[in-house]
Design a protein around this nucleic acid. Structure first.
Length: 716
DNA sequence: GGCATGTGTATTTTT
DNA sequence: TACACATGCC
């Protein structure tokens, strides 16, 4: 088969694409056509006759794999690319474990926990063990998960991890150890896997006697994107998968490694040739994305790094304007300035979609978002979205999970405590009465049919009317009805379902009627109705929270299987406000707001980096050691190299601490330490002149009159 | 005993 | 904002 697209590649890219068998390491700097190269390589393999099912493409996000495969598809012009195995390590692990997991004693319908589920379980376990001593603060549940996760992913002793990254927990090692033991025990009993377990079990799968070979041999070629952000466990998996076949291609850039908090290590790149002997190395250094001045400034940032990186980027592009460093008086002025620049480019024909605003932490865009809304500039925000971790979302998902797995302790624990007068103690007793907590090995559960249902906690719920405090009796009844409705047990028609939903339902007339479950979206609407009063009782902002649930119902419409919905939502949660808002707005022109982490792999004509003040970039959370600072430097580099034609770096000099105990305190900030002399020579420094907009001709002081009037109240 | 409620505190980045 | 912990209430 002819491959005309090969002619469009530069010599290095072409060498990578046409590499035959055996290990290949592609060092690909920012904007050097990495995605193109990987997509072409997949296309090349396909046209060489490799079965698509025998290709595994591991990427950092699902979006990245979809994009690459779509690109490969266009090249080979058959639909074979769609059959390539693509996805994140976690998603692929999930898929493989559903197929081969039984070799490890894992049922095919295990439940996947997200990080906050894991934290909740840690919390329960901690309470049970009573390890927290009275006199001192014990690590928070999130911290416990971080320690656990880091330990597993780095495959290193917990003691070392704590000493390096969580030194303030050093006195609690014994307690933490006990919690981890109990935590893993709990997960095992309920067939729960957290994110780390997905990788851990995949790794174990590779090592399993017969299955290991079967899993590995399934794939003739493995390709890994963003290799600089993989961790030791992931590299173990790859080695486990490549015992017989040695066809593995990895792509990465050591200068863009920004995920060490997830235990990623550039050792994986540096040691690639050791792990995979005979590896060929191809380096891509020609940048097609940015203008020379942008590249020069970015390179200057890395010039100051304490660590040397493997390459220096160059470009053929014609010269452009120097990146601007815009010093602002304060955040408000920064907002105004960003908006003004955005609109200016817009007027000159750069659509909003070709522009982005990048920042270190999700909250950094808060004020800007208000301003954008005020000016009617549409935007989508990526990153920092913790939609699934909001408690009301978790409450709804807990209902779905109980339906899916009636032995899910965590979900019951959550649901039952929503009822009035029910706390941890009562909830535990209630769950014992229902038999939610199974002893070590009670035969296998459910199997999705009524036969297995007969003895399940849900069945007991419906037939035994377990005891609860009188304050919770109505809630119990409403919940029982809800479960019955969602299981379709004893309700004939599905259509008249979403009327007011609560209490008054009496479906007993058709007790033995249809056994078919209503569609997922109907189930969710039904849960929403059940949740409505509980939500209003507990939360001030119930209305907004309930609206979120409607959005979840929207998302659910594309799913038919409840189990898959739950799993996919956990593995691939919505990453942007647009995914939440749904399709209607997709055609509009909109600005992108993104954390720098979520901007990885993206590019825009105009990029605005805000809050480039020391403490934000680099984040003062990361200043504990040199490695932390260096990672922040790479982060800044990633942000800068997203820009094609225009780059703005904004530095607000004054920060107000609203709502702080100290009243209207403010502090002065320094420009980011990465903007030092060598870098600044590459930048066009501008200082915003105060009052660019008519409306911001602010009076210097309040009109004192109202205060004078009110102060009489305490002076007289 | 167990739940509700109040107070202080610490808040990055993501599969 | 949400959690950890303390106190107050039934």
């Amino acid at each position: 088969m002819t491959e005309p697209w090969l002619d469009e590649l530069n010599p290095q890219q072409r060498r990578a694409v046409e590499h035959g068998d055996g290990p290949l390491l592609i060092i690909a700097g920012a904007g050097t056509g990495k995605t193109k190269t990987l997509a072409c390589r997949v296309a090349h393999l396909l046209s060489r006759g490799v079965e698509p099912e025998r290709i595994l493409l591991l990427t950092f996000t699902r979006r990245a794999s979809a994009e690459m495969l779509a690109r490969a598809q266009r090249l080979v012009s058959q639909d074979s690319a769609a059959r390539v195995w693509g996805g994140t390590f976690h998603a692929v692990a999930n898929r493989l474990l559903r197929i081969y997991g039984s070799a490890l004693g894992l049922p095919p319908d295990f439940t996947v926990m997200d990080e906050s589920d894991a934290a909740d379980l840690m919390s329960v376990v901690r309470a049970d063990l009573g390890v927290a001593k009275k006199d001192r603060r014990f690590p928070r549940k999130e911290t416990l998960v971080k320690i656990y996760s880091h330990t597993v992913n780095a495959q290193r002793p917990m003691r070392e991890i704590v000493a390096e990254h969580f030194p303030w927990c050093g006195d609690d090692l014994d307690g933490i150890r006990d919690i981890f033991d109990a935590y893993t025990e709990r997960k095992k009993r309920q067939f729960l896997l957290d994110y780390d377990d997905l990788l851990l079990f995949w790794s174990a799968l590779c090592a399993a006697p017969r299955v290991g070979a079967a899993v590995a041999d399934r794939f003739e070629h493995i390709l890994v994107d963003e290799y600089q952000d993989t961790n030791t466990l992931q590299s173990d998996i790859l080695r486990g998968m490549r015992k017989r076949w040695t066809n593995i291609t990895v792509v990465g850039d050591d200068a863009q490694s920004i995920y060490s908090f997830r235990a990623s290590t550039i050792r994986n790149i540096l040691d690639f040739a050791v792990h995979f002997p005979g590896a060929e190395v191809v380096t891509l250094e020609q940048n097609y994305r940015s203008t020379p001045p942008i590249l020069a400034a970015s390179n200057a940032v890395m010039e100051e790094a304490t660590q040397r990186y493997t390459k220096e980027l160059w470009t053929n592009r014609a010269a452009g304007e120097r990146p601007a460093m815009v010093t602002c008086v304060d955040e408000q002025e920064q907002c105004e300035c960003v908006c003004r620049n955005i609109l200016e480019h817009f007027e000159r024909g750069v659509t909003l979609k070709q522009q982005s605003v990048l920042f270190r932490a999700s909250q950094h865009s808060a004020q800007l978002e208000i301003d954008l809304a005020r000016r009617n500039i549409p935007y989508h925000k990526f990153g920092g979205l913790r939609f699934l971790e909001a408690s009301h979302i978790k409450d709804l998902l807990a209902c779905l999970r109980i339906l899916e797995n009636p032995y899910d302790e965590l979900s019951w624990f959550r649901i039952v405590q929503l009822w009035e007068g029910v706390g941890p103690r009562t909830a535990t007793r209630f769950m014992e009465e229902l038999g939610v907590r199974r002893s070590a090995r009670d035969d296998d559960r459910r199997g999705g049919s009524s036969a297995a249902m007969s003895d399940s906690p849900l069945q007991r719920l419906m037939t035994q009317a377990p005891s609860v405090p009188s304050s919770a009796r109505d809630s119990l009844r409403a919940f029982t009805d809800l479960m019955r409705d969602c299981l379709g047990a004893g309700v004939a028609p599905v259509s008249n379902r979403c009327d007011d939903g609560s209490k008054t339902r009496t479906d007993s007339t058709t007790e033995t009627g249809s056994k078919s479950e209503p569609p997922l979206s109907i189930q969710i609407e039904r849960i929403r109705d059940y949740y409505d009063p509980l939500c209003r009782r507990v939360y001030e902002n119930a209305v907004a929270r309930l609206r979120d649930l409607d959005q979840l119902a929207q998302i659910a419409r594309t799913y038919t299987s409840r189990g898959r919905f739950i799993t996919e939502l956990t593995l691939d949660p919505p990453t942007s406000t647009s995914e939440l808002a749904g399709a209607p707005y997709l055609d509009d022109d909109y600005l992108t707001l993104s954390t720098i982490h979520s901007a990885k792999g993206c590019e825009w004509t105009v990029v605005h980096i805000i809050h480039a003040a020391d403490g934000n970039i680099p984040s003062d959370m990361a200043l504990k050691d040199d490695a932390g600072v260096e990672e922040e430097r790479r982060l800044f580099y990633v942000a800068m190299t997203r820009a094609k034609d225009h780059l703005y770096i904004y530095v607000p000099l004054r920060y107000y601490h609203i709502g702080s105990r100290m009243g209207d305190a403010h502090s002065y900030a320094q420009p980011s330490r990465f903007l030092d002399g060598g870098v600044r020579r590459q930048l066009l420094e501008t200082r915003v002149r105060s009052g660019p907009e008519p409306e911001s001709e602010r009076p210097t002081t309040y009109d004192p009159e109202p205060y004078q009037r009110v102060s009489r109240l305490w002076k007289d």
